[in-house]
Amino acid sequence: MRRFLLIAVPYLWLVALFLIPFVIVLKISLSDIALARPPYMPQLDLSAGWEGLKSFFAALDFENFVFLTTDDLYWKAYLSSLRIALFSTVITLLVGYPIAYAMARAAPEWRPTLLMLVILPFWTSFLIRVYAWMGILSNEGLLNQFLLWTGIISSPLTILNTNTAVYIGIVYTYLPFMILPIYSALERMDDSLLEAAEDLGCSRLSAFWLVTVPLSKNGIIAGCFLVFIPVIGEFVIPSLLGGSGTLMIGKVLWEEFFSNRDWPVASAVAVILLLILVIPIILFQRNEQKQREANG
């Protein structure tokens, strides 16, 4: 009886407030698709003619379905979210790896402090950390003031409200997620392996490529997913730092919901976003599983 209660309480909570809401979203998005299909078909007829209709019937796979039921805007937003997520993951890796590496090489008595310093920003409000960049990147902001003062530029750069600002914001806020798993992989690494590689004639650089990087592979993979997955659905960064040209699906969903009040479309956007995320999430879980097994 006690065991039953112990299981039932959190179980039912999650079913009621996680699973059921999800089913509702799915249902609303599907009912929308069924309702919205007819008005979209003539549109297709006009724009693509017979060819478009034929391909519509010939290839009734999911992608076409979505393409037909949604606007151009959504596709562009999904693709642009993926692109921004991909590039920012790569940049975060390039910035984060040296930091994680240096932390793992630091004297052992320094490591807890360094670790704390990486974790601390994670506890401070995400919103505030993004907001901090608004003052730095604006036209009359500190970065421009500094660059003008040094004479590197003669007129202020427009950074705020562009994709560049979005990249900076993403790298800044997600950096700890990249550093931590790589650091924990590198910290466990046995230094004697590097010495062995160097003794066997490796240069330091090739020892790094052949020993350090492969040994930190799981950390790199985990860090990349921890950045990539949440960035795809990111809302705060594109809406504060991005401009009208920044298309990200989280922002589109938000606007669909709060500005256009089109709930079925917002639900459909959410369902497809989730379908896009399923693959990286599964890959991420598999990597975690592998790592757990490797650690015993």
Binding site: L14, V25, G233, L273, L274
Partner: peptide, 27 residues
Amino acid sequence: GRTLFSGMIYAPLVMPEVITGLSLLLL
């Protein structure tokens, strides 16, 4: 139902906030 249970524990960790928010609101 253990698999479902552990799935429901881990899924919200990777769920985009916009989706969690939207689904709860609709509920």
